[in-house]
Amino acid sequence: MSYRLTHSENIILNRIANLYSEGSTEEKEVAILLWERILSNYENSDLNPVYNIRDWELIAGNMAGVLTELERTEEAFAWNRKRMVMILEAGKGNELGRAVTTMACIKELTCKKESPMLFHQALNILKLMKMRYRYQAVKEYVEEKNV
Rank of each mutant, 00 (worst) to 15 (best):
D46Q: 09
R54T: 14
G61F: 02
L126G: 02
E43L: 03
L96V: 09
G23N: 03
E27T: 02
C111G: 05
A31S: 09
S45K: 12
A137W: 11
C111M: 11
G93Q: 10
R54V: 09
L96R: 07
V147S: 11
A99F: 01
E140F: 09
D55E: 13
I16L: 15
Y133E: 14
V85S: 12
N62M: 01
V138T: 11
K112P: 06
M117P: 01
M103I: 08
N18A: 12
L88R: 08
C105A: 13
E9D: 10
W35R: 01
R4N: 11
T102H: 04
L118M: 12
L47H: 11
E95A: 12
N80P: 01
Y42V: 02
Y3W: 15
L88A: 04
L39S: 01
Y135D: 04
K112R: 11
N18L: 14
G97K: 04
I59T: 12
V142G: 12
K113C: 08
E27C: 03
Y20F: 14
L128T: 14
I11K: 12
V85A: 11
N62F: 05
H120S: 05
M63N: 03
I87S: 06
E36L: 06
R15A: 13
M131W: 06
M63V: 02
L88Q: 10
V50R: 10
I38N: 02
D46G: 12
S115Q: 07
Y20P: 00
A78D: 07
E26F: 03
F119V: 10
M129P: 00
Y20D: 02
A137M: 14
R134G: 01
R37G: 06
A78I: 05
E140Q: 15
G65M: 00
K130W: 08
Y51W: 13
P116V: 08
L67K: 00
N146S: 15
A137K: 15
L96F: 15
Y141T: 13
I125R: 01
I32L: 10
R72K: 15
T73E: 11
V100G: 01
L58K: 12
A122G: 08
E26W: 02
G23F: 09
N10V: 07
A76Y: 00
E27K: 15
E57L: 11
Y42K: 05
M103V: 04
M84D: 01
L19E: 11
M117K: 14
F77A: 07
R134D: 13
Y42E: 09
L96A: 13
V147A: 13
Q121Y: 07
S45F: 09
K82I: 05
I32R: 03
R83S: 03
I38T: 00
A64E: 04
E114Y: 06
A31I: 00
V66E: 09
M86I: 10
F119G: 09
A64F: 03
L109S: 07
R83G: 02
Q136I: 05
M84I: 06
E143W: 04
T101Q: 08
Y141R: 15
I12G: 00
S8N: 15
L33I: 10
L34I: 15
Y133N: 14
